[in-house]
Design a protein around this nucleic acid. Structure first.
Lengths: 116, 116
DNA sequence: CGCAATCGTTTCGGTCCCGTATCATTAGGC
DNA sequence: GCCTAATGATACGGGACCGAAACGATTGCG
């Protein structure tokens, strides 16, 4: 069952969610960072720098820098793959899970408030 | 008629939209910039730096800088208010309108593709 | 063993953004 | 005319990010 949404509703939803996040003083993530974060939390592991770079069609340094920032925010963590020590496995954190869960609730709430 | 959405659907929608934008090489806007852009295009004018700063609960330089960047991207334009020359009126552009319209269509499309 | 391939990170010069404080310009009360 | 208030922009030091290139570490093939 697809979610039916008119363009005006879609834009209003996006605005209300962004406004809420900004006003709440949440980290000012870029679209790239958000794409990475949500992919880590929604798609099945394992996640690697290379895999994310391919999925987003960006270069590896873009992923590395985004992970640097989000690691400082405790939203994700990195760990060497002991089976192939060239790899770095990107893992979820408790704080990141809470952030994503809360973010989903905000979207749901703002969608519920939409006028027809 | 509110839009019903489960948290998992909401997060998946956000991910798919962000992924699409990143992959398409669209400007990597931050949440703040997106909140400003959508407010300019969805809320009734006039829009001023001070008004946006209050609406977003951020400082004026934050708005000025975001407008600098989005002006360079041709997404918005600035013009002195001739009736009160202290004010700067932030206005829409053709490119910005196309960007917002396209963005709305992307959200609608990704919502339609959502699994139940 | 040696060597090429792969992985993630780092470097480089340059741009953008941050928060705080200050600025120039304009308006309006007196 | 003067002085205060208001507006948006700017200066500052610091941090994050960009793309392109080079880097060290690790693997696995010949």
């Amino acid at each position: 069952m697809p979610v039916m949404l008119r363009p005006s509703q879609a834009l209003r939803l996006w605005q209300q969610v962004c406004l809420y996040e900004v006003r709440a003083g949440m980290p000012d993530l870029t679209e790239r960072q958000l794409a990475i974060l949500l992919t880590i939390y929604l798609d099945p592991p394992p996640h690697t720098v290379r895999g994310l770079a391919e999925k987003l069609k960006v270069t590896k340094p873009v992923i590395t820098r985004a992970l640097d920032t989000m690691s400082a925010l405790k939203l994700v963590s990195r760990r060497r793959d002991e089976r192939d020590r060239r790899n770095v496995l990107i893992r979820r954190t408790v704080e990141g899970a809470l952030f994503v869960e809360r973010f989903g609730d905000v979207i749901v709430e703002k969608a519920r408030e939409l006028s027809p």
